[in-house]
Amino acid sequence: MNDSSTLNWLVDQVMKALEKKVEDRESKPHMIAEAATSYEMLAQSHSGELPSDHSIDEVLPHNIPEPRWAEGMEELLASTPARIGVWRTGTRPLTSTMLALRNAHAAAIDAVFSEVSPDLLQEMNLFTVETHYGDMETFLRRPDKGRRINDEGVALMREKCVHRPQVQIVVADGLSANAIESNIRDVYPSLMNALEVYGLSCGTPFFVRGGRVGCMDHIGEILHPEVLVLLIGERPGLVSSESMSAYMCYRPHAGTVESDRTVISNIHRGGTPPIEAGAHMGTVLYKMLEQQTSGIKLIM
């Protein structure tokens, strides 16, 4: 992670220098604000537990010097997380826009190569199993390796887990450990509340390192849960590197087809709200058990 913090530091310095220049000229003060906010937004570590001043919920200011209709511009900005109203210099975007974009791209790449911290796993009381992924390069090139738990992992599951549970919860890093870091503390307890309200019993949850969506099937073969929910990091994008999905399946097994999985995606603080997503998962799992099916056959 050394490289990325150096990069962040460099970007920070460049931005500061730019801001200073702009400040000196005393023009377009909102540009500074935009650059600073988006930078902070991207670079901020997962801040405290309480609502913070800078969050993705907030609408970013635009760079347009004299919008024909300022309030209409605000409405447009509020309607999308996309980078609109960024203005230009000549035929190109402003330097601040370019840097913010490249920073987001770097954050996306970092998210793929990041790891879920052992502290978090301990806090959530999750033990770890690994797939056959080997190393990061292999993991990215060979998706099939991430679909099977290795032999030690299988033995560990057999030893530690409740067999044939009603609901099995599994957490996996997938393509973004950031996603797990940012969302699991919010989604997991909300899902547990929902299971309690629906009177569903839950097996022993654990974490899969180097996991792909298909690892659900292998776990299904070993633990035989009635329903399984996999909370997994999504491929990061330029809006968020913290987006998580929940894949849910009724009796997953070798050869489960993709259309038998139900998914809630885009779970992050600027997308599907994590706490409400956890609660809704409870309802989905309950309906799966009731209808004994999942995926496109499930009637919600």
């Binding site: 609502p51 969050s55 503390r185 919010d186 307890p189």
Partner: peptide, 11 residues
Amino acid sequence: ALQHLSYKAFD
């Protein structure tokens, strides 16, 4: 409206 809530704050 409460903006983003962590689970702890929500709880």
